[in-house]
Structures are given as structure tokens and as C-alpha cells.
């Protein structure tokens, strides 16, 4: 390779680090990947920081402070491609539960000296602040899909990551549908695939870690979940987990909250 290797940077915002760990977990592949890409800024792996601009920025985490809202602008300016990784970065993460509660009250409960805490009242995805070139879903992301995104970037092609339901993976694997055969509540039909239908293969319903699929009919699924016994109150909690603020789940959560209040 005559041309200089593209520079990779990994950035962290409000998150648990699980998605970055997925990158570290690539171990063998990561070493060989360094023949093709220069890991220029990845604090979780190395203290050495090569200044930008960067060819590919992987961004983990959501925006929960003013400082971060400014920081993401600078990162965008110094990144040719910006890819967000994980539920926090793509939809606001589990911390977006604060969007539906009183942040000050949360702070009072959690911190001994709340006065030191400066935080926004919302947790928002990176795409609410800057242009994002590709969103990789999951809580946490899948290692195979992450490598696929990096490989696709290096060869200038579209990542082979289908936008389809978790059910498609259940059927390809031959997993017996837990909803049809046992009446177990499952978010799979409206959830983006990527996990390989993990929970249904262990006899659990899907929790929606990968967020809504492209045409998620939450109303249609809710009607079915009510028929297996879920109440509006429970449905609020079904939709408000790792991807609570993803638009389709956000709307569904609010709708059930309203219905619950009028019940």
C-alpha cells in the first residue's frame, strides 16, 4: 500500500463503554486491521494520541451535557466519516429515560453534592447534533457488524447490514417463535436485526436492544401484546429500555403512558 493508511479515532460520550469494549474484543482482527488502518486516537486502547483530522470516527455514547454538545461539533469537523456505534449514540441509550422524568430529582437521589453536577435534562443521539454517515445499532453492538462497517469503509462500499426484523434471523436459524408457540411477549417483529435473534434462541422474548427496524409498526404489535396480557403500564416499560428515545419507541411509550393515565 503506497497511500498513507486512513486514520481511525474512537470517541466516548455518555455511555457504559461496552461498545468500545467490543472493538477491543476484536483482538486478532484488530491487530491485522492495523495493517490497513492507523488507530490514531483510541484512549481505551492506547494513551498515544495522533492529532486529527481523522478519516473514520467511531462515536460511542449520547449527548447529556453542554460540554459534550460542543465537543461533538469539533469531532465532526475533524472527521471525514462519522459512524455512531451502539444504542446510546444512535438513540440516546438507557440514560434517555431521564427525558421522561425530572432530572433534578434524579440528581438529588444519586449524588451526595448535587451542586457539582451540570447536566442537560435530556440524553440525545449524536444525529440530533451533527450529520452522521452511518449508524450501527445494538446494546452492545455486534463484533462482526463492527468489523463489517470498518471493512466496508476501507473498501468504499455499503456495509452488508440488513435493516430487517429480528424474526428474519429467528427463521433463518430455525428458532421456534416464542410468541406463537408460547405466547411470550417479544419485540422481535419491530426490532432491527443484528444480534442473531439471541433471546428467542434462549426461549426469551426480544427486548429490542437494536432499536426499531425501518418500518416498525408499534401499534400493531402493542395490540398483540395486550392480547397476551400486557397492560399499558407494562407496555410503557417495554418500549422504554435501551432505545427509549428512538422515534418509533418514543412515540409508542408516550401513547401507552397517555392511555394508562386515562384508564
Amino acid at each position: 500500500m503506497a497511500a498513507a493508511k486512513p486514520k481511525l479515532a474512537v470517541w466516548k460520550f455518555a455511555s457504559c463503554d461496552g461498545c468500545q469494549l467490543t472493538l477491543l474484543d476484536c483482538e486478532d482482527e484488530l491487530l491485522s486491521l492495523t495493517h490497513h488502518i492507523h488507530i490514531a486516537n483510541f484512549l481505551e486502547a492506547s494513551r498515544e494520541v495522533v492529532p486529527g483530522p481523522y478519516d473514520l470516527s467511531l462515536v460511542e455514547g449520547s449527548i447529556t451535557t453542554n460540554h459534550d454538545a460542543e465537543r461533538i461539533q469539533k469531532i465532526r469537523q475533524s472527521s471525514r466519516f462519522l459512524v455512531t456505534i451502539g444504542a446510546c449514540a444512535t438513540s440516546g441509550g438507557i440514560q434517555a429515560l431521564k427525558n421522561y422524568a425530572d432530572t433534578d430529582e434524579f440528581i438529588r437521589y444519586v449524588y451526595a453534592s448535587p451542586g457539582y453536577i451540570k447536566t442537560l435534562s435530556t440524553s440525545t443521539p449524536i444525529s440530533s447534533h451533527v450529520t452522521v454517515d452511518y449508524e450501527l445499532r445494538g446494546c452492545p453492538i455486534s463484533k462482526t457488524q463492527l468489523l463489517e462497517v470498518i471493512n466496508a469503509f476501507l473498501t468504499k462500499r455499503r456495509p452488508a447490514i440488513p435493516d430487517q426484523s429480528v424474526c428474519m434471523d429467528c427463521k433463518a436459524k430455525g428458532t421456534v417463535c416464542v410468541m406463537v408457540s408460547k405466547g411470550t411477549a417479544c419485540l422481535g417483529p419491530i426490532t432491527h436485526s443484528g444480534c442473531g435473534a439471541l433471546c428467542p434462541s434462549y426461549d426469551r422474548g426480544c427486548f429490542g436492544c437494536y432499536g426499531p427496524q425501518g418500518s416498525a409498526n408499534t401499534t400493531g404489535l402493542s395490540a398483540r401484546l395486550k392480547s397476551v396480557g400486557l397492560t399499558d403500564d407494562q407496555l410503557v416499560r417495554v418500549f422504554r429500555t435501551f432505545n427509549a428515545a428512538a422515534p418509533a419507541f418514543h412515540d409508542a411509550g408516550l401513547a401507552h403512558e397517555r392511555q394508562n393515565e386515562t384508564n
Binding site: M168, P189, N217, G220
Partner: peptide, 21 residues
């Protein structure tokens, strides 16, 4: 369409559906 979840299960279990990508 208001009931359909566009999940694709019908096509995957159907013994004649043959679409692939």
C-alpha cells in the same frame, strides 16, 4: 397494513416463497 408488522415471518415459513438477496 395497520395490523401487519412487516416482520417477514409469513414469507420465511412459506414453503413456496423463494426470494433471496
Amino acid at each position: 397494513a395497520s395490523r401487519c408488522l412487516t416482520c417477514g415471518n409469513c414469507t420465511q415459513v412459506c414453503p413456496t416463497c423463494f426470494c433471496s438477496t
